[in-house]
Design a protein around this nucleic acid. Structure first.
Lengths: 112, 112
DNA sequence: ACCATATGGGCTATTTATGAACCAAATCCT
DNA sequence: AGGATTTGGTTCATAAATAGCCCATATGGT
């Protein structure tokens, strides 16, 4: 529908995106990596690293998460072990949940 | 360089991506929203919602974050106020940091 | 059990992101 | 201050994501 660049974003997701971008940039500098070096390690171009650190909403989430992981930015404020645990736990919950969301027709029995 | 679909991802970023996807799906079902309804609210197509909930690394991070925000999934385990605080705090730190990472040439003075 | 509907998957056209090479300017080390 | 290098911002070609359909299946309310 809307172009990623012109999509309306909620303030929360914009802030979250900006914060993640800043955390990545700060972590990269802390680790004494140039944008080119980070790009090489992630396997992307330097230009993409710049857009990631700018908080561009159109970047592929895989590239952003990978860059974050490489410079040591952890998401969900949890380390990987807890992450995996939550993964399978969530899996269990998901199998117990209704697999399709059904809306009641709103039609009441009016034939009386 | 590499195509997003064939990029090598670290186990951490893969897990983080999978977890985020599951959290979004679970939150959507909890809120009794169909994939179509979520798509409408985010302003994206239903197919994209499906790929987001599948943890596709190629999805635009803006779309994923927006979907997460709409169903109430908070990243960084923090609400917006804390988010903004961290943002400005990080900004302050960033301005105090070196703006470019310079590597010592490694060349030692060998002209003696 | 029936039936409406939600979901998942495929397909094509269009829009977009990405990679690469370039330049100019800011920046940091010596 | 000098000088190499990082960075930021362009432009352009290409690859990929996205939207919008379609269909078949699974699902849950009644």
């Amino acid at each position: 529908m809307a172009k990623p660049e012109t999509r309306p974003y909620s303030s929360y997701s914009r802030d979250a995106l900006a914060l993640l971008a800043q955390l990545i940039r700060r972590a990269r500098i802390d680790r004494q990596l140039t944008t080119q070096e980070l790009a090489d390690r992630v396997g992307i171009s330097r230009g993409l690293v710049q857009r990631i650190e700018r908080g561009d909403p159109g970047c592929a989430i895989g590239a952003v998460f990978e860059a974050a992981a490489i410079v040591g930015v952890r998401l969900f404020d949890a380390d990987q072990r807890i992450l995996i645990a939550q993964l399978s736990a969530n899996n269990a919950v998901l199998t117990l949940m209704p697999k399709s969301v059904r809306h009641s027709t709103g039609k009441v029995k009016d034939d009386f």
